[in-house]
Design a protein around this nucleic acid. Structure first.
Lengths: 124, 124
DNA sequence: TTGACATGAAACCTGACGGTGTCATAATAG
DNA sequence: CTATTATGACACCGTCAGGTTTCATGTCAA
């Protein structure tokens, strides 16, 4: 019963770029495996395995509809990530001010179109 | 140098539990490798490699002091993570209300002890 | 029933990862 | 100078993750 024995945690699940794309693809629609795999340059089986890992981490949910299995995003587990992150927030607040504000400014609304938000790697 | 070709991104860097502990250990103090490795049940070389990966992702910074190399946290790259996360925030806000508030309530202080936040699996 | 479609499971390959031990080198102590 | 300490660079190894292909099963359509 809802035994929380996830072999894969959220951190590991989102570590893979393919998996992150998968999440984004399923962000608001529900899709069957074959349709999903059409968006990726790999075999359907490979995608299926990634989905399994995501499901294992609780990030997607499966629903069988006829002969197909539809997957959809389940964002709750990301809360763990958020909480982990929030712990470090106060640390970068120490040294960041302008940069932080610049980023924060885009969040509240619907900032998400800037997929490639480049951060200054070489700070000093 | 300043090679902007990080083989390891932030997502991958924090995927490993050891590396997350490493970050936490270096969160406000600067430590040399040997001292750091004293906190972990593995060889100094292994720790050193983890540090390399973290440095590669820009999450720690090295400073040579005499014959020792001191490492310290560099939280800026976590912003990328935060921005990635913020994209999904509005999605879990759809289905979460009480739960969200309950979690949010712990963040502001220094909440990080509740590692096992159980979420209702079947939302609808 | 028969056949096509959707999917998961299994066996397998390869490269990266996490770990070890050893060694070379730079810096400090005597 | 010599010995010790701190560290990084290597070489090596076992495991696992990501990928492929093949096969079995279940569902839908004629």
């Amino acid at each position: 019963m809802a035994a929380p024995s996830p072999k894969h945690d959220v951190f590991q699940a989102i570590a893979d770029p393919t998996r992150r794309s998968l999440l984004q693809l399923l962000v608001d629609r529900e899709m069957p495996v074959t349709a999903i795999s059409g968006h990726f340059p790999m075999s359907r089986t490979a995608v299926s395995k990634h989905l399994r890992i995501l499901a294992d981490a609780g990030l997607v949910k499966e629903r069988k509809v006829g002969r197909e299995t539809r997957y959809r995003l389940e964002p709750e587990p990301l809360l763990e990530l958020k909480r982990w992150l929030s712990f470090y927030e106060r640390y970068w607040e120490n040294k960041m001010s302008a940069l932080k504000r610049y980023v924060e400014a885009e969040e509240p609304s619907s900032g998400a179109e800037r997929a490639a938000g480049r951060l200054g790697e070489d700070g000093d």
